[in-house]
Lab assay of single mutants.
Amino acid sequence: MGFKLLSKLLVYLTASIMAIASPLAFSVDSSGEYPTVSEIPVGEVRLYQIADGVWSHIATQSFDGAVYPSNGLIVRDGDELLLIDTAWGAKNTAALLAEIEKQIGLPVTRAVSTHFHDDRVGGVDVLRAAGVATYASPSTRRLAEVEGNEIPTHSLEGLSSSGDAVRFGPVELFYPGAAHSTDNLIVYVPSASVLYGGCAIYELSRTSAGNVADADLAEWPTSIERIQQHYPEAQFVIPGHGLPGGLDLLKHTTNVVKAHTNRSVVE
């Protein structure tokens, strides 16, 4: 069995187990497998329904001669939608809004960016022009300005110390501490036991640490421990890039980060 097929099978099995364990909360999309990078042309966006009122959005972007996937989250909030992270750029984010209108038909009224990198804030200006209120932590807003990236308009308070959590509509926002970046936030959907790890969490097929220019490698494993301790009931975990899975993604990420750190020390 090929690795790609095995990865998709694991996603399907995880979703099936969740649907059985929580039949009222989960209505997993039966329309197909989780979209992969090879299936999404740059400039297009796919939506994948995880649970009743919960979707991931998947886009792709060219970077350094390669094409990478990027995940975000959409959560229903009454007759409105909360968006977590842009679709990595203005063109993708405009396509995301169009796809949401086509498939869901509810307005996106608020959006949260989970850290300051372009795959999370690139497209904020498109959201703002569409009347979406954009939010991020003060740290993310400051770092985005320093980096020359787009800056969300509103500040999220109460997320300055490791372990801080605040309720934001249908989700809980959690600051686990520094990891992929010093400002990275985690998003949890309690009604569906869905954990969105953003770039602080890796997919299972990833074996290298990737972009760690703004990471705190020493603190990252401790931050992941905080996530595990705060959300032990999480059933569906979405990484910032690639295929979702279960809580095993947290341990896998820790292993990859520690291996990278150990290699760096040896070198």
Rank of each mutant, 00 (worst) to 15 (best):
residue 135 Y to H: 01
residue 174 F to R: 09
residue 240 G to L: 04
residue 227 I to R: 03
residue 252 H to N: 14
residue 225 E to L: 08
residue 219 E to R: 07
residue 133 A to V: 11
residue 261 T to H: 10
residue 114 T to M: 00
residue 19 A to D: 15
residue 242 G to I: 02
residue 42 V to P: 08
residue 58 I to F: 03
residue 127 L to K: 04
residue 97 L to H: 00
residue 211 N to P: 13
residue 68 Y to I: 02
residue 50 I to P: 02
residue 42 V to I: 03
residue 40 I to C: 10
residue 35 P to G: 09
residue 213 A to S: 10
residue 250 L to R: 03
residue 31 S to H: 06
residue 250 L to C: 09
residue 20 I to F: 06
residue 228 Q to P: 02
residue 80 E to D: 13
residue 225 E to I: 00
residue 5 L to A: 12
residue 180 H to G: 00
residue 141 R to E: 07
residue 192 A to K: 13
residue 210 G to L: 05
residue 153 T to K: 08
residue 172 E to N: 13
residue 128 R to F: 13
residue 214 D to C: 11
residue 246 G to R: 05
residue 160 S to Y: 14
residue 205 S to F: 05
residue 45 V to Q: 06
residue 192 A to F: 13
residue 148 G to A: 14
residue 22 S to T: 15
residue 58 I to K: 10
residue 77 D to L: 02
residue 148 G to T: 06
residue 41 P to V: 05
residue 36 T to Q: 05
residue 29 D to E: 11
residue 212 V to T: 13
residue 50 I to D: 08
residue 224 I to M: 07
residue 73 L to K: 01
residue 244 P to Q: 09
residue 36 T to W: 09
residue 60 T to R: 06
residue 130 A to V: 09
residue 36 T to M: 13
residue 17 I to C: 05
residue 120 R to Y: 14
residue 65 G to R: 09
residue 41 P to M: 12
residue 25 A to T: 09
residue 201 I to T: 03
residue 227 I to G: 12
residue 207 T to W: 13
residue 186 I to W: 11
residue 208 S to K: 13
residue 97 L to K: 01
residue 171 V to N: 00
residue 180 H to L: 01
residue 55 W to V: 03
residue 62 S to F: 02
residue 149 N to Q: 00
residue 189 V to L: 12
residue 74 I to V: 05
residue 27 S to W: 12
residue 180 H to V: 00
residue 158 G to Q: 04
residue 130 A to N: 15
residue 180 H to R: 00
residue 213 A to W: 13
residue 28 V to H: 00
residue 172 E to S: 11
residue 186 I to H: 00
residue 77 D to H: 03
residue 239 P to N: 11
residue 226 R to A: 08
residue 257 V to M: 15
residue 252 H to D: 09
residue 38 S to T: 05
residue 149 N to S: 13
residue 191 S to A: 05
residue 190 P to N: 02
residue 263 R to E: 04
residue 136 A to G: 10
residue 129 A to S: 13
residue 2 G to D: 14
residue 58 I to C: 05
residue 187 V to P: 02
residue 256 V to R: 11
residue 100 I to V: 11
residue 39 E to Q: 01
residue 85 D to H: 00
residue 229 Q to L: 14
residue 195 L to G: 01
residue 4 K to H: 14
residue 224 I to Y: 11
residue 223 S to W: 02
residue 58 I to H: 09
residue 141 R to K: 13
residue 189 V to F: 13
residue 248 D to M: 02
residue 104 I to A: 12
residue 104 I to K: 00
residue 174 F to Y: 05
residue 53 G to V: 08
residue 107 P to C: 11
residue 184 N to A: 08
residue 1 M to E: 07
residue 178 A to D: 13
residue 222 T to N: 05
residue 221 P to G: 12
residue 237 V to H: 03
residue 179 A to Q: 02
residue 169 G to L: 10
residue 20 I to Y: 13
residue 75 V to K: 14
residue 112 V to P: 00
residue 202 Y to D: 03
residue 257 V to F: 01
residue 217 L to N: 07
residue 158 G to F: 04
residue 212 V to P: 09
residue 49 Q to R: 07
residue 40 I to R: 09
residue 15 A to K: 09
residue 231 Y to V: 09
residue 127 L to G: 08
residue 182 T to P: 03
residue 233 E to F: 10
residue 105 G to N: 05
residue 159 L to D: 13
residue 95 A to H: 14
residue 250 L to K: 00
residue 44 E to V: 09
residue 48 Y to Q: 14
residue 159 L to P: 09
residue 26 F to E: 12
residue 151 I to V: 15
residue 138 P to W: 12
residue 66 A to I: 08
residue 158 G to M: 02
residue 259 A to Q: 03
residue 47 L to R: 09
residue 51 A to I: 10
residue 8 K to C: 09
residue 8 K to I: 02
residue 170 P to Y: 13
residue 34 Y to I: 07
residue 10 L to N: 03
residue 195 L to E: 13
residue 234 A to L: 15
residue 243 L to F: 12
residue 179 A to K: 06
residue 266 V to L: 07
residue 57 H to A: 07
residue 145 E to G: 10
residue 226 R to K: 01
residue 250 L to V: 03
